[in-house]
Computed example of a mutant assay.
Amino acid sequence: MIKKASWGIIILITILIITFWETLAYGVRQAKGQLAITLNTQPIEEVLLDSTVADSIKQKIRVVQEARVFSFDQLGLERSSNYTSYYDQKGEVALWNLSASKPFALEPYTWSFPILGSFPYKGFFDPERAKIEMDELKAEDYDVRVRPVSGWSTLGWTSDPILSNMLERPEGALAELIIHELTHSTLFVKDNIEFNENLASFIGEKGAVLFLNEKYGKNSASYFEYIIGEEDHRTFRDQMLLATRKLDSLYKSFDESVSDSLKSVKKHILIDQIMNSTDTLHFHDPRYYQIFHSGRPNNAYFMSYLRYYSSKDSLEALLVDQYDNDLKLFIEGMKAFHE
């Protein structure tokens, strides 16, 4: 009886390993990549005392420290040991993000992971692995996008370090990134990435404005630089959100009589119009006019704007109408609602 039960367990485990082998292998690779970073971090106290580290890097690390304390004390985000260590990327990209969408619908390809749930993107520490999976999705006619990631949250599984490439950002954008990621480690709703990313983006931006105002004041260069940058970002993302609505309307107009080749032609014509429309917008930073010079965006690109910014107006209305424009109360309300 015992031997039969033992064989039954062995057979069951074998079946599970075979069934979930790809997911298990991916999990092991990700754990190794994260561990390689974790084992090569330095406490920020050591970095700040190191005479070989540039003063510009130390200054940005202090900004991260201040933004972190501000997030805990003034915004009520969950206290953690995140961003108390430093990882030198030596100018290299640490993580790559892969996302995909159907070619004639704004519907993401999703990956499911035990415990964590479903995600419309997938991270890779090895760019070659990202390319292999990207090519596989392309072969299945998905629109795909691979991009470098400048920061991410492990949701409490490890203590997230300051990545050296983060420090290339201006102070306001750096504070926004830290607040964004600390929002993820405070509140993360399973199987609802669009809510999670919209919320973190919204709190990150609002929190950065409050942080810069407290640290420097509204008449400071840092505050002004961030506000001007946000104006450009808002102008561009609003145009991209308008583009998603136009693309969605086009795709929904297709019926079974429309061939894929005709769909592709109409899709490319509309995307070309969207690309050219940026010339009609006003930006303080002329680099926005060059965004599409490297190639035509696809559905995976446009989906990212829905994922991060589609709920901005509704979150803004909620903040003003129900929380009297008090970001800390707003965050408390979000946590209470999703407990």
Rank of each mutant, 00 (worst) to 15 (best):
L35Y: 11
L35Q: 11
A36R: 10
A36N: 14
I37M: 06
L39K: 14
L39H: 07
L39F: 10
L39E: 07
N40Y: 06
Q42V: 04
P43I: 08
P43V: 09
P43G: 06
I44N: 04
E45M: 01
E45C: 01
V47Q: 04
V47R: 00
V47G: 02
L48M: 13
L48S: 06
L48G: 03
L49P: 00
D50Y: 10
D50V: 08
D50K: 08
D50N: 15
S51D: 13
S51K: 13
T52Q: 13
V53Y: 04
V53F: 04
V53D: 06
D55I: 15
D55A: 15
D55M: 14
S56K: 14
S56F: 10
I57R: 03
K58W: 05
K58M: 06
K60D: 04
K60S: 07
I61H: 01
V63F: 04
V63H: 00
V64M: 02
Q65W: 07
Q65V: 08
A67W: 01
A67C: 09
A67D: 02
R68L: 03
V69F: 05
V69R: 06
V69H: 04
S71E: 05
F72L: 02
Q74S: 13
Q74Y: 08
G76I: 03
E78D: 13
R79M: 12
R79Y: 09
S80A: 14
S81N: 15
S81H: 15
N82E: 03
Y83L: 07
Y83D: 05
Y83N: 07
T84Y: 07
T84Q: 14
